[in-house]
Design a protein around this nucleic acid. Structure first.
Lengths: 202, 202
DNA sequence: CAGCCAGGTTAGCGACGGCTAACGCGTGCG
DNA sequence: CGCACGCGTTAGCCGTCGCTAACCTGGCTG
């Protein structure tokens, strides 16, 4: 039952999930057929039903797995020194190493079954909560909604990774980490910090 | 033929496109049926074909329109003083005022017809080019690939907007603008600015 | 006031996609 | 040796979806 760390049954299911993730990321959940997923792993079509109850179940399992990994990883970084940098680095690494998963999680939450969506949402909420607390500790005086908004913004920044790929992995990691930290430490918390002298007409 | 500024045929088409954008954003292109779009604007089903050649044509028109607006807007901001801030503010405003469009553009590029995709890609490229030049001007010594990566990262940051909504519009605009500028002015460009030479643990 | 046509309706076709059914086959264990 | 079972195959059902056809209607216009 437990989805976490099933010792080492390495292959078929995981292989299928990986292929499916790639396809879902590229074409969207509804844009991918059972047969597409099958042939991506060498078998064809309905053989998938030996491993998964349904197509929805694949997406469900995929997304809950991601959320669990992120939450667990996040939880054990916040214990260390400089938790903000740790969190950023962790997320950056995950995004760079799993671009397809990140993409699917961003785009296909809406295609989940209701119970699956609730579960994933709950996990994500806890992950965000982690970030919010760490951000507020690092940037004193920041309101909670602002911290939450900042967290989402930084997720967007880091998760933009799959669409880029102009630098090699390590340079990319450094760049994203730097930018994320810079953004986070300059988020406007203190009231009166207006920067609006620009003319926003039409 | 020209898609730009067709005088003022204001309503039906645009109304349909807006509704479709909302739906595409929420469920993905393939997750939305013709009938869904129809009933979202009060008419039902195939009546849409009085206005569009096909469902693909809707997406195509939608995405090219967005890209054209962004490019045009971007082009006339880079002329002003402090073009980086102008560009950021412009993009932030657009994202905050058109969350559905932003979402669709991010997620559904892959569902475009080949010729449509080429056209959109071309427009996007020019928009990114704008950013790259402005960024390199603002951050001397920054390599072009780094600038490109930074641009995409900032798009991610700003476009994360639809998933947030914890602050009111203006606060959100300020927050995003500040974060984006902070991120952009601290992007690692100068060679040797590795943060990987030692573990940044304090 | 006739009639056109913009813009809507419903019926229905053909393709496709998810899933089930029924069957085949090799490997491990009694 | 045989049989069960994990894992794969192909055939095919059934619902849905994009789109066309055929028809209706009300307001402008000659």
């Amino acid at each position: 039952m437990s989805a976490i760390a099933e010792a080492k049954p390495p292959s078929r299911r995981e292989q299928i999930l990986a292929a499916a993730a790639e396809l879902f990321a590229r074409h969207g959940f509804h844009g991918v057929g059972i047969d597409d997923i099958g042939s991506a792993v060498g078998i064809s079509g309905p053989a998938l039903y030996r491993h998964f109850r349904s197509k929805d179940a694949m997406l469900g399992e995929m997304l809950t797995a991601i959320s669990e990994v992120l939450l667990a990883g996040g939880q054990n970084r916040v214990a260390r020194a400089d938790p903000l940098a740790e969190l950023v680095r962790f997320h950056v690494d995950f995004a760079l190493d799993n671009p397809a998963l990140i993409t699917v999680q961003e785009r296909n939450l809406g295609n989940l079954t209701d119970p699956d969506r609730r579960k994933v949402r709950a996990l994500q909420r806890r992950y965000v909560e982690l970030w919010v607390e760490v951000i507020r500790a690092a940037v004193p005086g920041l309101s909670e909604p602002s911290a939450r908004a900042a967290a989402h913004a930084v997720f967007g920044l880091i998760n933009s990774t799959p669409h880029s790929r102009h630098l090699d992995r390590d340079q990319m990691a450094d760049l994203l980490t730097r930018m994320a930290l810079a953004a986070l430490t300059d988020v406007p918390g203190s009231p009166g910090t207006a920067l609006s002298e620009s003319v926003p007409d039409e």
